[in-house]
């Protein structure tokens, strides 16, 4: 990788200040995407601002019907949290299957959501549960957050501080991993929320997206059969050596069906 200036601020304010000073700075959360990217010389930031020392950004709180997870909370911590497992078991289970054990020990929820990797798992949960993303500047609704391939509503200098997930009466996530990378080739999160069923898909498109037809079908009849007949169009879905857009479109239905079955 190219060399850079390294900063390890103790507060969000210091982190933002460091970024502003840098000519082309980059925040680093767990580094599970950034460091491999730097190693491949695919990015050349002037400064890397490590958020790892900001204690405020870590921790899990359950308050009534809301699970709030600090942005720098690691996947392994979410996976092992008894509170999360009780409030939204599907979320704990999702976290327990992100990447591999070592990635879960370093990777963070904030980093994953901020990066909006098309094959990341968390975005599906954020979108399906209708989570709220809290930054140092504002609160952003999940539906307004994911904008495209590695693109989010975050502005320059904006740091996710926490993500709040409303609990759901039923929820489950089913992932079909890419056989090689083990990232989600298709992941479907279904949730029966206070505002009705929500279905979010990751891995298949440029970023996580909802499937309205499935949600409508589930609103009428919460059962695997309800989504079995809903096909998402292959047009615009990702295609690579592991799966054509058609195959991914098919998997969306299969995973949705299985997720609904798992959610009960």
């Amino acid at each position: 990788m190219y060399d850079f200036e390294y900063h390890k601020p103790k507060s969000v304010a210091d982190a933002v200040a460091a970024l502003k000073k840098a000519s082309d700075g980059k925040f680093m959360a767990g580094g599970m995407t950034l460091i491999p990217t730097l190693k491949q010389r695919l990015a050349q930031p002037s400064d890397v601002i490590d958020l790892g020392a900001i204690g405020d950004l870590r921790g899990i709180k359950v308050d009534g019907n809301t699970v709030t997870i600090g942005a720098m909370t690691k996947h392994a911590e979410v996976a092992a949290s008894a509170e999360v497992a009780k409030a939204i078991p599907a979320l704990a289970k999702l976290a327990a299957n992100i990447g591999d054990g070592q990635v879960r020990n370093r990777g963070t929820i904030g980093g994953s959501v901020a990066n909006s990797d098309p094959a990341a798992d968390y975005p599906a949960a954020v979108l399906a549960l209708g989570a709220t993303i809290t930054t140092n500047e504002r609160k952003i609704a999940a539906d307004d957050f994911f904008k495209g391939l590695f693109e989010t509503a975050l502005k320059e200098g904006e740091i996710i501080t926490s993500i709040s997930f409303p609990t759901a009466t039923k929820a489950a996530y089913m992932k079909f991993p890419n056989p090689a990378s083990r990232y989600a080739m298709v992941g479907v999160f279904v949730a029966q929320t206070a505002s009705g069923p929500r279905v979010a898909v990751t891995g298949a498109g440029a970023c996580a997206f909802r499937v309205k037809e499935m949600e409508d079908a589930l609103a009428k009849n919460w059962s695997p059969d309800a989504v079995a007949g809903v096909k998402v169009p292959a047009d615009g879905l990702n295609g690579d050596i592991h799966g054509s857009p058609e195959y991914r479109a098919h998997l969306v239905t299969v995973m949705a069906k299985r997720a609904v079955a798992a959610a009960g």
């Binding site: 056989p179 090689a180 990378s181 990232y183 690579d240 050596i241 592991h242």
Partner: peptide, 24 residues
């Protein structure tokens, strides 16, 4: 079941050039 070295048939780029795409 898993492994395949795949070159792009036109450009000759190795499409399975890392563990992200070559399935060990």
């Amino acid at each position: 079941l898993l492994e395949n070295a795949v070159y792009d048939k036109e450009s000759g780029q190795l499409l399975s050039g890392s563990y992200m795409d070559y399935c060990m």
